[in-house]
Design a protein around this nucleic acid. Structure first.
Lengths: 230, 230
DNA sequence: TTACTTTGTGTTGATTTTACACAAATAGAG
DNA sequence: CTCTATTTGTGTAAAATCAACACAAAGTAA
């Protein structure tokens, strides 16, 4: 029978968005060679544990969160020495969450758990910088062809929130009128009849919500979400 | 230290295209419980072997081919019993090759290696049917936003070849004039000055070739390959 | 009441996409 | 040799989409 001496881990790149800033969740290690340094949440999987469960478990354990969106990003196993203790192959996951929904709480294993603005992430251990980079690209491109932005927002949001999210993450200006027109033309964002005022001044705005059911229906009819701007 | 009892394998979904048919490479097993049944090329990785090398090695060993295009597809590790001998997590790769470039030759491990038209693939072992399905989706969508079709064709091809490839794989009709116009507008397909006649009748056509260098240049200038039709 | 901020809305010109047909070059049949 | 069948090569016009752009309405703070 085959003999292998390789361990398998999962890691997660969790994105959060709040008030014009994109954040990534990192964990400060308590033990081991990398004690005190920051890494992505993750860890070894159990023998009888599906990969996806392992990620969800680690996120719960290390930071106390449950994400809105989770998908496999890619598997890092070309650099045989990415972990210098022994060979570890890591399956990286891409996740989205609304930071407001949770208070981060570091587990026993972790010294701390913290949101870092994407441009102020400290040097991470292992090859986790590469993972973040890849995940960031995925986020940017996916935002244009799948309605995943809503997983970063409250269930009900102002149109300006959605617009700012796109501006922030895609790092480009967007024409407010054209953006609203296009999003509404899809018919997957519904206007509630609530009107709220958030900031200190300015005209109150209507709240909107993402109609997931409608979106799923449209998918069956070959609908293609697609939002890009000059 | 962590103890795990999980093995890691790689598998490849290799697509080939010839004369209006899309093919997938499968291997007939010689040994083991699944002897005689068909599976995707692949196998266990070595302790000091990068994942990508493992795939290339297996493709060489089991079928005698080297592919034109290779990328990670995804990792299958949620079904703990996908292999009923013991737990195996498999990293699946997506590959493209021009079948003309190789004569398949089954290795010692394999009883046979064969191209199956995508619609006539026998029931494959393990969860390899799922892998093929996922890879097929990836192929279809990727064809529309990356110029990977060329990796399935000869270096020099008739415009009708390219067009038929798109029709075949995307399973839709394409307007010949609009297709040619759009492809040529990108400037990544160059017309050679060779004129050939392939079939038994009809006007001879010019040969074209994909200008990879030009494509890479354009990528730096934010060029986005994109070809879709009603 | 005035200044400031944010929401909400429509039109026009430019660009892109779609639909569509016939002539040129060749092979094969008669 | 001529007629038919087959494949390549090419342009235009209508329709749809995209891009650019400005001002009124509803609120707060001074």
């Amino acid at each position: 029978m085959i003999n292998q001496n390789i361990k398998i881990a999962v890691d997660a790149i969790v994105f959060g968005y709040e008030k014009g800033t994109l954040y990534v969740l990192a964990i400060q290690q308590r033990f081991g060679k990398l004690a005190d340094s920051w890494v992505l949440p993750g860890g070894f999987i159990l023998d009888d544990e599906p990969l996806i469960n392992a990620v969800e478990r680690e996120l719960k354990e290390e930071a106390g969160i449950a994400v809105n969106y989770l998908e496999q990003l890619g598997t890092f196993g070309d650099d045989v020495n990415r972990d210098d203790r022994f060979r570890v192959i890591s399956v990286a996951y891409f996740a989205l969450v609304n930071p407001k929904n949770f208070v981060l709480k570091a587990d026993t294993d972790a010294k701390d758990a913290k949101w870092f603005p994407i441009n102020e992430i400290p040097k991470l251990g292992f090859d986790h910088d590469d993972m973040v980079k890849l995940a960031h690209q995925r986020l940017k491109s996916k935002l244009t062809y799948q309605p995943i932005g809503f997983d970063l927002l409250d269930a009900e949001f102002l149109f300006s929130d959605l617009e700012n999210l796109y501006c922030t993450i895609l790092e480009q200006d967007i024409d407010r009128r054209n953006f609203r027109k296009k999003i509404l033309s899809f018919g997957i964002v519904k206007e509630t009849n609530k009107v709220v005022k958030i900031g200190a001044s300015g005209r109150p705005g209507k709240l909107f919500s993402f109609d997931k059911h409608k979106y799923n229906q449209l998918l069956k009819e070959n609908f293609q979400f697609d939002i890009r701007f000059a």
